[in-house]
């Protein structure tokens, strides 16, 4: 193949693309360590003369960033747990039990995957308002305990189907209840699928903006994306340059996702590929 004949030529576009992807990050990292006097200068400094490490601490003092981070952890954590729990139970039901209308109901699950949630946004808001859930985390958490996220149900069911039925049956012979079979046979074998669901659920909830924007009004309840937006508005309003702090804050919010990717790369690829190729 051509790659084998001139491999070095191919490094050119790869390096170029790599620079395009990573360049903006480097600029952001550089900016986040700048001194305020190094922000509004032309030509811009690509890297600070002296690293201002305290910028990254400053962020936590200038805005209730610690509070936002804690809120994000609570909301994301609760949503991810709910998503894993309900996804597992529902997928188990679809994968291992025969009941009337099962195939029809599973088609319904699949068809909700293409339903844009903007269509449901307004009535959902009105329902949660009726329930008195506005300005609380419930609208951001509770649906995940009720099987929100059809794609994850699909993914988990597909995975359960690959586990041989014989395992269930021999356990049933020993008198195990179906919940026991799920817990001690199916789940231990499903760790890769569980990890995939956990990772993608985490990323989606951590990044979630429109939901919190609609449901949370009190600043103390903001999650990190809303907090960042709040910080941006505050920063824009003042006269002194705040871009270095905004950049430090943006990077801070990005770190969990990036870390997760670096440590669990193979689950990312698996999850994306499962969604893409078999979907």
């Amino acid at each position: 193949m051509s790659a084998r004949r001139h491999p070095y030529l191919l490094y050119l576009p790869v390096l170029l693309l790599g620079t395009l992807f990573i360049g903006p990050f480097l600029w952001t990292v550089g900016s986040s360590f700048k001194h305020p006097t190094e922000i509004y200068v032309f030509p811009p400094l690509l890297w600070p003369r002296e690293m201002q490490w305290q910028n990254w601490q400053e962020v936590w003092i200038q805005v209730p960033f610690a509070r936002f981070a804690r809120n994000s952890v609570v909301v994301t954590g609760a949503a991810v747990v709910g998503q894993i729990l309900s996804t597992t139970l529902v997928a188990y039901g679809f994968a291992r039990f025969r009941f009337p209308t099962r195939d029809f109901l599973f088609m319904v699950v699949l068809s909700t995957m293409i339903l844009p949630f903007e269509v449901l946004l307004i009535p959902q808001f009105l329902i949660f308002r009726e329930l008195g859930w506005l300005d609380s985390y419930k609208p951001l958490i509770v649906p995940f305990y009720f099987g929100a996220g059809p794609f994850f149900i699909f993914l988990m069911r597909q995975f359960f189907l690959t586990i041989p039925l014989d395992l269930d049956q021999s356990a049933r012979l020993d008198g195990a209840h179906s919940l026991r079979i799920l817990w001690s046979i199916i789940l231990p074998l499903s760790r890769p699928a569980l990890a995939t669901v956990a990772i993608f659920s985490f990323l989606a909830n951590w990044d979630s903006f429109l939901g919190p924007l609609i449901y949370l009004n009190t600043m103390e309840k903001y999650t990190l994306p809303l907090g960042l937006r709040f910080f941006q508005l505050v920063a824009d309003a003042g006269g002194a340059p705040r871009e270095h702090l905004l950049m430090a804050a943006s990077l801070t919010v990005s770190i969990p996702g990036i870390t997760l990717f670096v440590v669990a790369q193979k689950y990312f690829v698996r999850g994306i590929v499962l969604s893409g190729i078999k979907g």
């Binding site: 309900s86 039901g93 039990f97 025969r98 109901l105 699950v109 329902i127 305990y145 009720f146």
Partner: peptide, 22 residues
């Protein structure tokens, strides 16, 4: 069948309340 319905019931309830009805 009953067990199956019980397992999928979280989704079924969620679907009715947060998707079908809206």
């Amino acid at each position: 069948a009953v067990a199956g319905f019980i397992y999928i019931s979280p989704w079924l309830l969620g679907f009715l309340a947060f998707t079908a009805f809206p």
